[in-house]
């Protein structure tokens, strides 16, 4: 069992948990993820690592409620436990193994969209701890969905926040901020790391390709085991089949086939939606999910 030491909501459907997981905490690096299973009948849910404390032996995760298991997860409180918590999975971000001096000479731009802000945070924090300040753009639909603002402020070089509806700070998509920074303010970036919804990563990549900025994205396809055993997480990258859980989750964004990945993402929409509906409506569930009559 993996004890939850802290649990709090960051937005109505986004919550943060600090979980005791000694092995994961001592081995993980930015860019990696864990798989969490709430109890006997829960799903195995891949979640990116948002923070870790090697001394305390804890790992912080940020979760958005999307399926039956995540809805049940949100109800857990400090003191409760997860049945399973495995990791770290996937490869660390490339820069972790780069020469620090050459890294210091690079100008990096991070883009976190919605929940994607959570996995961006440990990367920016790692760089900050190694004396590198990166620029960070955080995008969200609306003010209430901006997460980890204070934490990010403490580790980022320049922080730009934008909301789709203009309810907080800048108004518009993250792509508009990138354009503004590069075209109007003359910023130069050697590399961009974009993490967020697939559609956002797709459009960031289209733009950065135009701007000539190499871009890394973190993919979050459907997963089961997270160790390369099932192939559920396969993606087309540069025309080759890759398993996100072992070859990724980070890939060269200019090579990823996003359209194909987004279609695969929809695979379980009806079933997951159905499981969720069942959870929310209990016995009252009749119709509407597309699978029952």
């Amino acid at each position: 069992m993996y004890k939850i030491l802290k649990a709090c909501d960051l937005a109505s459907n986004i919550f943060l948990m600090e979980v005791e997981a000694k092995r994961v905490a001592s081995a993980c690096e930015p860019g990696q993820f864990v798989i969490v299973k709430i109890d006997e009948r829960g799903e195995r849910i891949p979640l990116t690592i948002c923070d870790y404390d090697r001394e305390k032996g804890t790992v912080t995760i940020v979760v958005q409620t999307i399926g039956a298991s995540t809805v049940r997860m949100q109800k857990l409180r400090a003191g409760d436990s997860f049945m399973d918590f495995v990791g770290p999975l996937g490869r660390p971000s490339e820069f972790v193994n780069e020469d620090i001096d050459s890294l210091k000479g690079k100008k990096m731009l991070f883009v976190g969209g919605g929940l994607g802000t959570a996995p961006v945070y440990p990367q920016v924090k790692w760089l900050h701890e190694h004396g590198i300040d990166a620029d960070v753009i955080v995008g969200a639909k609306t003010k209430d969905l901006v997460i980890l603002e204070d934490e990010m402020k403490a580790v980022a070089g320049n922080l730009y926040i934008t909301t789709d509806d203009g309810s907080y700070m800048r108004a518009g998509m993250v792509t508009e901020v990138i354009k503004d920074l590069v075209e109007n303010q003359g910023n130069k970036y050697d590399v961009c790391v974009a993490i967020g919804p697939m559609i956002m990563m797709k459009f960031v990549c289209l733009l950065t390709k135009e701007l000539g900025i190499p871009t890394i994205v973190s993919m979050n396809p459907i997963m089961v085991d997270g160790t390369g055993m099932c192939g559920a997480c396969r993606l087309l990258v540069g025309g080759e089949v890759k398993f996100a859980c072992v070859d990724g989750p980070e890939f060269d964004g200019h090579l990823v086939d996003f359209d194909q990945a987004m279609k695969r993402q929809n695979l379980y929409k009806t079933e997951e939606g159905r499981a969720l509906l069942k959870e929310q409506e209990g016995d009252t569930h009749h119709g509407g999910c597309g699978t029952c009559s």
């Binding site: 192939g231 559920a232 087309l236 279609k263 159905r274």
Partner: peptide, 29 residues
């Protein structure tokens, strides 16, 4: 081969066996 609806036998069997997707009281689809 990367289309939705193409599975490895491992994935299909794992969902059914290990995750008990065939049972209504388990979450895995």
């Amino acid at each position: 081969e990367t289309a939705s609806g193409v599975f490895s036998a491992n994935e299909y069997l794992t969902r059914s066996n290990l995750m008990k997707a065939f049972r209504d009281d388990h979450d895995t689809p």
